[in-house]
């Protein structure tokens, strides 16, 4: 098995901040907007370096999405920053009409996604945002797994023309992907070669999938592990090729099982290569207050549950 080294826990939102800081220096067209969460989104450095290209819009997310759409008309590349909940559900119609349907080159950057924002509770823990965004025609949906990948994705989406939803989070998690690595939108990253079960994970669950693969290996189950950072467009070939080899799959994500990565994978397999699938995801429920670790354990979004789902799915082959 390949060995992945955690070079030190870091938050993915800081990867976004680092990427945005770099873009500020390298791409004059990049502008940033924030709805009163500059510190939480790690946008302070961009704001300090480029006060003319940073727009503090206040607690007015709908207006922020409209302003971002308008800034593209004049050639700017706007990056909006707020929590995932306020980046999607709160402003769905503004994104739908002024950005997606109007094909505007806006990058919707969302922190504090999923359960792991922790103690703030369910009002802030959106578990439906991937579904909301992937249903919009033309929207690219990315959920990164660590600091390095989030920074790389932030740089990559500036060079891509079209609306993008970039989802990341608050907790400090293992940082294990290559520093200054290449990020190809829509291209899966194959992390472990295996023959018995495919594990496809996105976001914070990718590290958990690697941990699960180690444990499964000890139990005599060989896991093929794939990091799907881009949920739309989905790298269907990577998934189908893996399942042709293993015959079954576990999907893992910090999101509702309705509308998330697991559902996109299930559709792909149903069409091209039907196979048993188990879902590591929340089960059509809201979250609650607690520490990130407590929440991940209670809702089964961790390596232990990936292991048990993998053991279950290989029996269904």
């Amino acid at each position: 098995m390949k060995v992945y080294e955690n070079t030190g826990n870091k938050d993915t939102r800081s990867g976004f901040g680092a990427g945005l800081t770099q873009l500020g220096k390298t791409n004059e067209k990049v502008v940033a907007l924030c709805a009163d969460l500059t510190g939480s989104l790690k946008m302070n450095e961009f704001a300090a370096n480029h006060p003319d290209r940073f727009f503090q819009v206040g607690i007015a997310e709908a207006n922020m999405m409209g302003i971002a759409a308008g800034l593209t008309i004049g050639g700017k590349i706007p990056f909006t920053g707020t929590f995932a909940n306020f980046s999607t559900g709160r402003v769905y119609d503004q994104i739908r009409q002024s950005i997606a349907y109007s094909d505007k080159n806006v990058k919707i950057c969302a922190s504090h996604s999923g359960l792991t924002l922790g103690e703030d509770g369910a009002t802030h823990q959106i578990l439906e945002d991937i579904g909301l965004m992937k249903m919009l025609p033309g929207m690219t949906v990315i959920n990164t797994c660590d600091f390095n990948q989030t920074k790389a994705a932030t740089l990559a989406i500036a060079d891509y023309h079209g609306p993008v939803y970039l989802r990341f989070g608050r907790p400090k998690v293992a940082n294990f992907t290559p520093e200054n690595g290449d990020f190809q939108i829509g291209k899966a990253v194959h992390l472990q070669e295996g023959t018995d079960v495919t594990i496809v994970a996105t976001g914070h669950l990718v590290w958990e999938a690697l941990e699960a693969a180690k444990e499964l290996n000890e139990k005599g189950i060989s896991a093929d592990v794939i990091n799907i950072h881009t949920i739309k467009p989905l790298d269907e070939k990577a998934i189908i090729d893996s399942v042709k080899k293993t015959g079954c799959i576990v999907t893992a994500e910090e999101h509702n099982f309705l509308g998330g990565l697991g559902e996109s994978v299930a559709r792909t397999l149903a069409q091209h290569h039907p196979a048993p699938q188990e879902f590591v995801a929340t089960q059509d429920t809201f979250g609650e207050s607690g520490t990130p670790a407590q929440l991940l354990e209670k809702y089964g979004l961790n390596a232990a549950n990936i292991v048990s789902k993998a053991q279950a799915v290989v029996k269904r082959k």
């Binding site: 727009f55 709908a62 207006n63 922020m64 999405m65 409209g66 302003i67 971002a68 759409a69 308008g70 800034l71 593209t72 008309i73 004049g74 050639g75 700017k76 706007p78 119609d93 503004q94 739908r96 009409q97 002024s98 349907y101 109007s102 505007k104």
Partner: peptide
């Protein structure tokens, strides 16, 4: 230059273009 129909969005878009 922008879709409209669902009401209330054009002023925000105009601000963005004015800033650009």
């Amino acid at each position: 230059r922008i879709a409209s129909g669902s009401l209330g969005q054009g002023m925000s878009v105009a601000i963005g273009t004015a800033l650009a």
